[in-house]
Each structure stands twice: as C-alpha cells, then as structure tokens.
Design a protein around this nucleic acid. Structure first.
Lengths: 203, 203
DNA sequence: TCCAAAAATGTAGTGACTACAACAATGGAA
DNA sequence: TTCCATTGTTGTAGTCACTACATTTTTGGA
C-alpha cells in the first residue's frame, strides 16, 4: 500500500489544518474560533477544511482509534479472561499514560477546552456512545449473552465517565509537585473501587 | 400565584407552537422541518418561536420534569430505603405507564423520531447527563459518600439506556396484540436482571 | 382614555455546512 | 515531451439555526 506524492500531499494538508486548528482551539476556546479563521490560518479555502473534516468538531477530535481501546483490549485478551478485569487493566494503563511526565498538562488543557464548549461536550458523548457500540460488538464475539454484553459496555462507559470527572477534580495542573503522587494514589483507589462494583455486580 | 390574561395568552402561544411543532416533527422528521415552517404553521414570527424556546430541540423535548423523576423518587423515599430499590421501582412504574393502553404507539413513534435525528439523539444524551447530575444531588442529600452517589447515578443512567434499547427492540407497534403480554414479561425480566446487577454491585 | 410594561414582529447579520461549477496539480499513456 | 483523465482545491451561492436590536402591537391598570 504505497502512498504516491499526491496522497502524501493530501495528508500533509489535512495534518496542517488539524494542527493549526487544535492550536487555535486550545488557545482561544472551540466556540470562539471560526472555521473561516482556521482556514485562513492554515492558508487554505474554507471548502478545503470541509473536504477533509466533515464537521468542525472533527478538527478537535482527530485521533482516530482512541475510543477503540477497550474493544481492542477485549479482542486481544485470552478467551477465558474476565471482561471486567481486562477493561480495568486497560483503563488503568490508559490513565497512567495520561499522568506520564509530559502528558498531564496537555491532557488537562484538552479536557478543559472540552468542558468549556457545549459542542465539544456533545461530541464527546457521541464518541462515548460509539465506544459502547464497538465494545458491545467485541464482547458479543466471545459470549452469546447480548443483554449482558450490552450492559457491561454501558457500565464500563459509566465508570469511565465518573472516573474522568474524578481525574479532573483531583489532579493538580503541574505534574512536578509531590501532590501528584498523592492524587494518583487517590485516583487509583477510586478506579479500584468503581471496578470492584462492576465486578461484584456482574459476578 | 394568579396568572393574568397576559401570562395566560403567552402560555397559550407557547403551547400552540409546541403542539404544531411536535405534530410536524412526528409526521416528517425533526431534521426535515425547519423552524420557519413551524412558525408559519403556528402563524407566528420566527422570532416568537425563539422567544419561547431557546433552541429547536426544545420544541420537541417540551415536557419539563420528565427527567426529574428519579431524583424526585429518591427524595420522597424513606431515609432508610435502598436507593437501587427506589430507582428500580420508579423505573418500573414509568415503564408500565409507557406501555399503558393509549401510550405505546405514541411512545414508539416519539422514540423513532429521536433515533432518526442526530440532533435529537444529542439532546437526549444531554438530558440524560442532566438527569445524572440531579440524581447525584438528591443522593448526596441522604448519604455523604459522593463518589458512590455519583456512581449510582451513572449506573442508573446506564441501566436506563440499555433498557430503553431493549424496549424498542422487543415491543410491537400496536398495543392490542397478545404479543404485548409476552413482550412486557420479557422486558420486566430484563429490568429485574439489570437492576439485580446494580444491587449486587453496590451492596 | 391614556400610559407603561411586556409580548410579538421585522430586519440584518453571523457561522456552520452543502451543492456545484471552475480551476489547478499530478500521474500515467502515447 | 505532450496530452489526458483523475483528483485535490477553490470560489460562488445558498440554506438553516440562531442572535442582536429596534419597532410595533397588545394589554393591564391608573
């Protein structure tokens, strides 16, 4: 699957637009930046933006597959593993990655930008819905109890939502402080608590 | 709190707009009907529509307080009652009401109209979020464990989502058939199952 | 009967998004 | 190298939800 110069240039344009857009959004807020401004800053026509991104929100949520993590984790897990264990491990790993040295500040600003924009919050809910669907599909491949699978996916999404709120509330803005350790410990405790509820319920 | 003729007329206009809008939406779909059409059909200016309803979606979701049910149920329940029991009873009652003689067909068309419109689905998600917030607040009034309360609310919302899907999948369109009884039995079984998971998890 | 508040209207504009036609860059064939 | 068909880019015109704001109409009460 070679990419010719043509396709390469196309992806380059797309990336340039996405980058410039993300920068503007983080700086000034999603709603305060117009698509026309993004186009101007990226030195392309407004139409070109919409050629690459179906909606303004796609300029912000441009990491395909972030929401596919849980479904992938389920597919890659051994057939006899408990889904809740797999999902907890996946969530824990993802969270630790977010807390890694360079990532934390970026991540918090990202989430804050979302919280400040009704449009982005709506899109995040849609993404979460999509995650539930794909996770349910993955679970259906290993167990025939569809209602149960659907419930597991919904409960996982609920857990994720609660824990992300917790994460935003507990974490300091700078990753350097010693506070971080305490916050991280509190967070992992909360994660364990929440997933324990799911595990007990689904046992 | 008397309502003068003035206020009465205002509410009357509002109701007329809402009614005519709902009719049009159910007939032709939410996205296919413009606000201008609604205004024309209700014989008012477009501005008047927006004077009464902040957004187009509010024309459709115009039953204030339907999403307040769970929080109210919690507040009205005896202090020592198990929240999950209260919520299950509330959900069961609500569901049975939906299945009542005249309501079923209307309800299904309502939901189908939502499913056909990305905008309405987004708004329904927002409403569900709002429900979680108010339910959490109600739970916080009777128990100090905020994380647990937040989790209960999120799990209830998840249960509701799963069960509403189930409801749409299982129920026939006409309420007259004998099929309804079987469907209703299946549904109530699913409800019991789902809430049993929550109860066990939160025990 | 007249006035002040409030409801309804009209006008003008913004911003996301679509349809579509014209244009330009490019990869490959002759 | 030249020519053509493909494809990415651009510009134009328009729709629709929604806002700001000034104007007009209605209405309850003095």
């Amino acid at each position: 699957m070679e990419l010719g110069r043509r396709e390469r240039k196309k992806q380059q344009t797309r990336q340039a637009i996405s980058d410039v857009a993300t920068t503007l959004f983080l700086e000034r807020g999603f709603d305060a930046v117009t698509v026309a401004e993004v186009a101007r800053a990226a030195d392309v026509a407004v139409q070109t933006v919409f050629n690459h991104f179906p909606a303004k929100e796609d300029l912000f949520f441009d990491e395909p597959g972030w929401w596919a993590g849980p479904a992938r984790a389920i597919r890659e897990a051994p057939a006899d593993a408990d889904p809740v264990d797999v999902l907890e491990a996946q969530y824990l790993a993802e969270t630790r990655d977010r807390l890694a040295v360079g990532h934390l500040a970026t991540w918090k600003q990202f989430v804050r930008t979302i919280e400040d924009s009704p449009a982005l919050k709506a899109r995040r809910r849609l993404n979460a819905d999509q995650l539930e669907v794909t996770l349910t599909e993955a679970l259906d491949e290993r167990s025939p109890d569809h209602l149960r699978n659907r419930l597991i996916a919904a409960l996982y999404a609920a857990a994720q939502k609660v824990l992300e709120e917790r994460l935003m509330a507990v974490l300091p803005d700078d990753a350097s402080s010693a506070e971080l350790d305490r916050a991280q410990a509190a967070l992992e405790h909360a994660i364990a608590q929440v997933f324990a509820v799911l595990r007990r319920g689904l046992a």
